[in-house]
Simulated assay, not measured.
Amino acid sequence: MVKLRVKVVTWEDVVRWTKELAFVILESGYKPDVIVAIARGGLTPARLLADYMDVIDILSLKVEHWVETGSHQEEAVIKYAAQGIDLSNAKVLIVDDICDTGKSLMVAKDYVEKYWKARQVKLATMQYIEPVAQIRPDYFVDLVRDWTWYMYPWNYVEDMVNLVKKILKEHAPLSLQEIIIKFQEWYNITPPIPLSETLRVMEYRGLVKKVDGKYELS
């Protein structure tokens, strides 16, 4: 039984989506002076968009919302807030990888308008998960009608670790082969990095221990 709907995203997907997104924005007539990337997920898409759209200035805001793969804290908050930035003469594009609840986008937009005094702000994401989002981005290219966890290339290790942790919380101790079977049952995807490598990383981080050939959480 699948417990979490997961889509593995490739680098090729990211390049294709950001290229499509760039043309959607350009064809709308909006030409931002500054791109603000929501860290961490928006950093790579923002850099690619800047290249396609000939935007020189990129800033970032660290927004904390998702605390673990598939789960989030109730409110999104700005971390390491930078003040004293003046964008009063700038048209701004705020970029994130995905609009899920939309709270990260809303918090970032409010901050950029209130503290950085941006003249105009628009929002862009690759994915827009329509059923759960509380805000609709101005620009997106992939409309998602069923909630799905998108596993982006810059998040493979973190996501794989968290997905394995979910399994071990319920079923430890398990051998590598048993974890492989459970992983397929729970998520129905081909792991983007081998589960053996994931468990090795988890051992280095002190998250799991191996006893008599089986893994359990430390």
Rank of each mutant, 00 (worst) to 15 (best):
P32R: 02
R200G: 12
S71H: 09
V2D: 12
R5V: 12
E130I: 12
V161S: 00
P131D: 06
W66P: 00
I98V: 15
V211W: 01
I193N: 06
E203P: 00
T44M: 13
G70I: 06
V8R: 09
E185N: 10
P137A: 04
K122E: 08
E68G: 06
A172S: 15
T10F: 05
I135A: 05
L49A: 04
D86C: 08
I180Y: 02
H171W: 11
E74G: 08
K209P: 01
L123E: 06
Y139A: 03
V36N: 00
K31R: 14
R40G: 03
K79H: 10
A82M: 14
K214I: 04
A124W: 02
P45I: 07
D146M: 10
T10N: 09
A90R: 10
H171N: 15
N89K: 14
V2P: 15
P194S: 15
L4F: 13
L163F: 04
L163S: 03
G42E: 05
Y187D: 03
G84C: 09
L43H: 00
F183P: 00
P153A: 10
A50E: 01
M202H: 07
L4E: 13
V208M: 06
S60W: 12
W116K: 02
E178H: 08
K169Y: 08
Q184F: 06
S196K: 14
P153N: 12
W116V: 02
E20G: 07
W66L: 11
G84T: 07
S88M: 05
E12C: 01
